[in-house]
């Protein structure tokens, strides 16, 4: 256990150091633009997996949380010129509150009913923002980046580092949950909610906790997106593609272990970037769909499911 923790944090530090160093040695800005998107997807799918994976509540509302994160940042910048750290912190709080509210409204529903309710939430939130004049409404809103500080050469490089910090944070939280009694409770209620209740698991409270944490992380992941694009509009901030991509990443990676959504996000994120550059940004949606179907049929427990199966059969031999 202890050795695992040292390895984990050592790797996390190495990862952050590598991102920092890359800002000194990599000249081509494209890598940072692409890297940012992939890191953002890692945070989103790890956050999604806390509710969708551990608890088994399939949430189609990722884009609602992500978009609210973006617009929280937009609002803070245009209203008081808030710095990036404040934008992210406030977005996380807003996300937690929103997770609590959505959870309260929807978590008593099970299975497909919960999923449908989360889609409805996305539409409600998007419609609200679309009609919010001071946030630009349907036409969108432009914002200015402040000047960047050393050691970064560009604002996007800094955003990549910030998103990398969020990756470490979200993975650490997800890993903690998985190894703690919260994780065991979520796993129990995913297997059988009534049996979990009758074994002493406070299912509603645990689901709410998962929804709050998941929502906070999703909103936090969205917040730097405003500065990344210097522009926000409801149709792209609340694009249902985020919900679908994130769900696909988590499921393809596998949701039984925290590393699953990380692997899935890297694999699909890189694939999407390659396809966007080489063919077109529309094709990647198609590829996503095909991969999801292949995995659901061939490896329902995702990539880590494949690994575990391999290890288990080795152990028996």
């Amino acid at each position: 256990m202890k050795r695992n923790a040292i390895a984990f944090w050592g790797f996390a530090l190495l990862f952050l150091a590598a991102i920092l160093l890359s800002a000194q040695f990599v000249a081509n800005e494209y890598w940072f633009f692409a890297g940012y998107v992939i890191l953002q997807f890692i945070v989103l799918s790890v956050a999604w997996s806390i509710l969708g994976g551990y608890a088994g509540y399939v949430n189609f509302g990722t884009s609602a949380f992500f978009g609210v994160g973006v617009y929280t940042a937009v609002f803070l910048v245009s209203a008081i010129g808030a710095p990036l750290a404040l934008q992210i912190a406030v977005a996380a709080i807003v996300g937690a509150v929103m997770g609590f509210a959505v959870g309260l409204l929807t978590l008593r529903m099970q299975g497909i009913f919960f999923s449908i309710a989360t889609i409805a939430v996305t539409i409600v939130v998007e419609t609200t923002v679309t009609n919010w004049r001071s946030l630009g409404g349907a036409a969108g809103i432009q914002i200015q980046r402040p000047p960047v500080t050393a050691p970064f050469h560009s604002y996007v490089q800094m955003l990549v580092f910030v998103q990398a910090l969020l990756v470490v944070l979200s993975v650490a939280i997800s890993r903690y949950i998985q190894n703690s009694w919260i994780g065991r409770g979520l796993q129990a209620l995913r297997d059988d909610e009534l049996a979990a209740e009758c074994t002493g698991v406070p299912t509603l409270r645990l689901k709410m906790t998962a929804c709050v944490i998941s929502g906070a992380l999703m909103c936090a992941a969205g917040a730097p997106g405003a500065m990344y694009l210097q522009y926000a509009d409801p149709a792209s901030a609340f694009n249902l593609n985020y919900s679908v991509s994130v769900l696909a990443m988590a499921l393809i990676g596998g949701t039984a272990h925290w590393i699953g959504p990380v692997i899935g996000a890297i694999l699909l994120g890189v694939t999407q970037q390659l396809l966007t550059v080489t063919i077109s940004s529309e094709v990647n949606v198609l590829v996503l769909g095909v991969m999801l179907v292949l995995f659901v049929v061939g490896a329902p427990e995702g990539i880590i499911g494949l690994f575990r199966k391999g290890r288990r059969s080795e152990g028996k031999a």
């Binding site: 065991r184 409770g185 796993q187 979990a196 074994t199 002493g200």
Partner: peptide
Amino acid sequence: RPFRSMTVIENLMVAADFT
């Protein structure tokens, strides 16, 4: 109604954890 993704002892540990 067992917890299907767990081993036998893990099923019992859920009870121990939460009660």
